[in-house]
Write a protein that binds this DNA or RNA. Sequence first.
DNA 1: TAAACACTGAACCATATGGTTCAGTATAAA
DNA 2: TTTATACTGAACCATATGGTTCAGTGTTTA
Lengths: 116, 116
Amino acid sequence: MVQYKIARLDASFAALSDATRRGVLEQLGRSDASISQLADKFHMTLTGMKKHVGVLEHAGFVTTEKVGRVRTCRLGLRRLEDEAAWIESYRQLWAARFEALDRGVEDLKRREKTSA
Amino acid sequence: MVQYKIARLDASFAALSDATRRGVLEQLGRSDASISQLADKFHMTLTGMKKHVGVLEHAGFVTTEKVGRVRTCRLGLRRLEDEAAWIESYRQLWAARFEALDRGVEDLKRREKTSA
DNA sequence: TAAACACTGAACCATATGGTTCAGTATAAA
DNA sequence: TTTATACTGAACCATATGGTTCAGTGTTTA
């Protein structure tokens, strides 16, 4: 299997493991938004939302820019390439494994072992 | 965007956010393994590995079966379909968004707003 | 200038996570 | 029958997470 940037995968899968953060990403896909707007939409305090945005920003999924007193959040440049690649790679591994199982190879091995 | 099983996505992305657990999945893609073997390979106590396997099992990625004193771990039936689908859906959203940006639509809007 | 707004940071809280050790239980091997 | 193996569960630990409140700071608006 290909070698990925481990820490980055850790951070991005962790970032995606929260429904609120996935929601924020989907929202920012529709339009940019301020922290306040996001906090309002997801029924959360400003401070709470700021933390989520911080996580997304740290994972590279979001960038922010403060103009005046408003901080605007936008989708970042990362497009989940590494994550998609890991998952795709795993799916191939999985398919190959179960194909082998279907052929009965593994079952046979197991039977030989237990009957030995 | 399509509606996914939220709790499941939470659990599976969380499960994937740890390098050891991703490693275990890749290992199990090559061959089944006992808890001891996995613990050994990932330089960890039996108890620690058992917890990781528990997380993967809870997320549906792994199934286990105890025969005698050995618990054998195998890949489960889930093949990251929902996860792949979410990511793909996000990538499309992202692409559409940046395509719009490229066309300058957003930039124009922003300029109109600030100059108003 | 005064009041309202948008954010920021520190502190706190409960719970989860990733790991350990230690004390078992059950099975297999000598 | 003793001993070694493989796992299990409880307890513990440090740190992270997801949320809050409260007390600011800086910006608009009236």
